[in-house]
Computed example of a mutant assay.
Amino acid sequence: ECFELLGKSARAKPCKGMMGLVEEGQEIMAEGEQKEDAAADLALIGAAQRVEHYEIAGYTTARNLAQQLRHSAIVSLLSKSLAEEENADQLLNQVARSLMSVAKMPAAVEQTE
């Protein structure tokens, strides 16, 4: 939509940074088969958050540039995408906190016995 507003056509371009993050995520999934469930899930959440942070950085940069160029419609679209990525990151944080508290519960039970 942003490209349309600028009268340009969008074209796909491979992103080496994102390709590296995807490759790293695949490695984490493969290594997770040998870990306990909670540890594997937390590692996978970390990989997903690295992707989210990369996207957040990209949308923030693009939005800031659009603000400087006074393209308010584009700023609005990019702000919406940025908010979606930040929300995804917050949801991943919530899941990670839940997993960490569940993972700590057995240890706490063992200590009281």
Rank of each mutant, 00 (worst) to 15 (best):
M29L: 15
M29Y: 11
E33M: 13
Q49R: 07
Q34K: 15
D41I: 09
Y54P: 03
V51D: 07
I28R: 12
E31G: 11
E31K: 14
I56H: 01
R70T: 08
L21V: 08
L21I: 15
R50V: 02
M19I: 10
Q49A: 06
S76K: 05
L42C: 05
E55K: 03
K80A: 13
A39H: 12
N64S: 03
I28E: 09
G25P: 08
A30V: 13
E52Y: 03
L44H: 06
D41Y: 09
A57M: 05
K80V: 08
A39W: 11
E31C: 10
L44V: 06
G20C: 09
R70A: 12
A48H: 02
I56N: 00
K16M: 09
Q68V: 00
Q68M: 10
E27D: 12
Y59N: 03
T60N: 05
E31R: 14
K35A: 10
A66H: 03
S72A: 11
S79G: 15
G20P: 11
A43M: 10
L69S: 04
A30W: 15
E33G: 15
N64G: 01
T60I: 04
V22Y: 13
V51Y: 03
L44S: 12
T60Y: 05
R70C: 09
V51P: 03
I45N: 04
Q34R: 14
